[in-house]
């Protein structure tokens, strides 16, 4: 096989591999940082440690935005928007220091997180 023919075959194969990597980005590039922040935040809320929970939510939001940039090309828009909306609601219930609602909202955030890239 001469080099021209090899390139003609390898180029589309390389392109398809690249496309698959981009499309599978939600599974491979979402990482564990957001999940760990959700667990820490859940602990703070359960212990009604509201100052720490407010700071932790900010960290969670920053980490989530970072993950969105990595997974946006393969994930569903609704998956991303649902989690972002849930985080916005969580901000409100933490400000109101409403433990029950905060825990319910955190469970929903966790559910959306696990659904991404599944």
């Amino acid at each position: 096989m001469n080099s021209e023919k090899a390139v003609a075959y390898l180029l589309p194969i390389a392109a398809i591999i690249l496309f698959l990597v981009i499309m599978l980005s939600p599974s491979y590039f979402k990482g564990q940082d957001v999940h760990q922040e959700i667990n820490r935040l859940t602990r703070d809320v359960a212990e009604e440690n509201w100052d720490s929970a407010t700071a932790r939510l900010l960290l969670l939001d920053i980490e989530w935005q970072r993950v969105v940039n990595r997974i946006q090309f393969g994930a569903e828009r609704e998956e991303i928007n649902s989690l972002s909306r849930s985080l916005a609601r969580l901000q409100g219930v933490i400000n109101a220091e409403d433990k029950d609602s905060a825990l319910a909202e955190l469970a929903e955030v966790n559910y959306y997180w696990l659904a991404i890239g599944r």
């Binding site: 589309p12 392109a15 398809i16 496309f19 981009i22 499309m23 969105v68 946006q72 090309f73 828009r77 991303i80 928007n81």
Partner: peptide
């Protein structure tokens, strides 16, 4: 989420995938 950027990337994937598949 930057929707315009996502559409650009997904369009490029669709375009070149279609090109490869139609050649097949």
């Amino acid at each position: 989420m930057n929707e315009v950027l996502v559409v650009i990337v997904r369009s490029l994937i669709a375009f070149f995938t279609l090109l490869i598949f139609t050649r097949i």
